[in-house]
């Protein structure tokens, strides 16, 4: 492949300039996020239909979730969005050390989120608050309450999986940042990861009230 030299990063042969490449990547990333929205969509539709059908079950089940832990995780993720934005900003300005630190902070906050989630999950599993066929909790009245936990585990599980992928990507980006791959002329991967991370946070912003705050 023939690449054209411009400072550290070489843009691919079919682009006309570094900006041309950056711009194309950005369109690609937005399209990717668009398909992510539709990837989550069936779960939200399923949630809506089941909640309309069985509002009492959802009301009952939601009280079994710990809204304080959910709120804690919401704060954690919003903060991580801030550190991510700061990391992107730092790499745009070519501030390598700052960018590495903010990326590391983002990773730590993501791990905190997963740890809290882990405790929530183990607690639920211990109580038998599980997807429909495995449900064994005795304290609920409405027969459809187990369905809520199917939706709960699918939604939060899929979201958690996205967080996990995000952590992997963030570590890779952080190592590249440390190596000095990025500068004022090239920060595409950092910015793309940022977009992804904000999307994952945004999903949680919807999940938290929908699952934890049915009152």
């Amino acid at each position: 492949m023939t690449n054209v030299e411009t400072g550290k990063h070489q843009y691919a042969h079919h682009f006309k300039s570094a900006y041309h490449e950056f711009d194309s990547c950005k369109v690609g990333m937005w399209l990717f996020l668009l398909q992510e929205v539709l990837f989550f969509a069936p779960l939200f539709v399923g949630y809506a239909i089941l909640r309309i059908l069985y509002p009492d079950a959802f009301w009952e089940a939601s009280h079994l979730l710990d809204w304080k832990l959910g709120a804690l995780n919401t704060i954690v993720l919003i903060t991580s969005s801030l550190t991510m934005a700061l990391a992107v900003n730092a790499s745009q300005r070519g501030l390598k050390d700052k960018s590495v630190i903010y990326l590391a902070l983002t990773i730590i906050l993501a791990l905190v989120f997963l740890i809290v989630k882990y405790f929530e999950y183990t607690h639920k599993i211990h109580d038998g608050l599980l997807p429909a066929s495995l449900y064994s909790y005795e304290g609920t009245i409405h027969p459809k309450t187990p369905l809520f936990f199917s939706i709960y585990f699918m939604m939060t599980g899929l979201h958690g999986f996205h967080i996990l992928i995000g952590i992997g990507v963030l570590i890779w980006i952080m190592l590249r940042a440390k190596r000095g791959d990025f500068g004022t002329d090239y920060y595409t991967p950092v910015e793309m990861t940022g977009l992804y991370w904000h999307f994952v946070d945004l999903v949680w912003i919807y999940l938290f009230p929908l699952l934890y705050l049915i009152r």
């Binding site: 089941l50 429909a132 369905l147 199917s150 585990f153 699918m154």
Partner: peptide
């Protein structure tokens, strides 16, 4: 897991 969302037997 038998999540039951598409399964009438589980609601």
């Amino acid at each position: 897991l038998g999540i039951g969302i598409f399964d009438a037997a589980l609601g």
